[in-house]
Design a protein around this nucleic acid. Structure first.
Lengths: 116, 116
DNA sequence: TGACTGTATAACTATGCAGCTATACAATCG
DNA sequence: CGATTGTATAGCTGCATAGTTATACAGTCA
């Protein structure tokens, strides 16, 4: 509690938070999570809907599983994945609205430029 | 508007969202943003408070600048950086509370284990 | 002008994936 | 049992980038 008092957040804490963001930092994973937003789904279905290679999808699902964002359930030959951490959608919504505002501002700037 | 209708989010959109998360996916950047949360600050001050090399801090600040998360202002020899997108703190708070819940659950699980 | 200071950048190494192909593994069916 | 199907994994290539050192650049002061 000497120099940690002013830092007030440990390196581990920063690393954990960063890891969470890192899990959402790839377009393919976001695409997977997006289709999973409509409900649990087998790997094959995810492959279809995301137009992504099966091995690649499987690897991303493994990462998301390790991150605790999705859960897996085996049914016969299939593996059914489901989003277990809904906080993720909140994060995405926040980013989207923030991006929306920014794009709108850019759009206004462009219009203003054109008008001037 | 043919196959985009079912995808409803373009690849560009996913990439933009991912880029935003990517900017927050490194502990050092989070540390920088965290100290910047207390107000605008020169590079030297950030270097001090984050215990990180100057070149490294400068590079991360450049990334955050490109991402539109911070802004730069020159005053004499110094460069003063400031967080311009407060939405970031909302994102971090969301992640933190989510992580907090998860850790609490783990803690309960461990306690239960010990008791059993 | 030249010395000095704060910041940015160049060049490099090392690491961490993303995506691919091929293949291993697991469960079902005949 | 063997064949087939759905999924996971191994091995590979290529790319992005974190952190480092050295240096360039810009603004200040003498």
């Amino acid at each position: 509690m000497t120099r940690k008092a002013q830092q007030d957040l440990t390196d581990d804490a920063f690393e954990m938070i960063a890891a969470r963001f890192r899990a959402l930092s790839e377009p393919t994973r976001l695409k997977i999570l997006h289709v999973l937003g409509r409900g649990e789904m087998s790997v094959g279905e995810i492959v279809e809907q995301t137009h992504t290679g099966q091995a690649n999808v499987s690897k991303h699902l493994g990462l998301l599983l390790d991150a605790g964002i999705v859960s897996r359930r085996k049914v016969g030959l299939q593996a059914i994945y489901k989003v277990t951490d809904d906080g993720i959608f909140e994060l995405c919504d926040t980013v989207c609205s923030s991006l929306g505002e920014r794009l709108a501002a850019q759009q206004r700037a462009v219009k203003g430029f054109r008008r001037a």
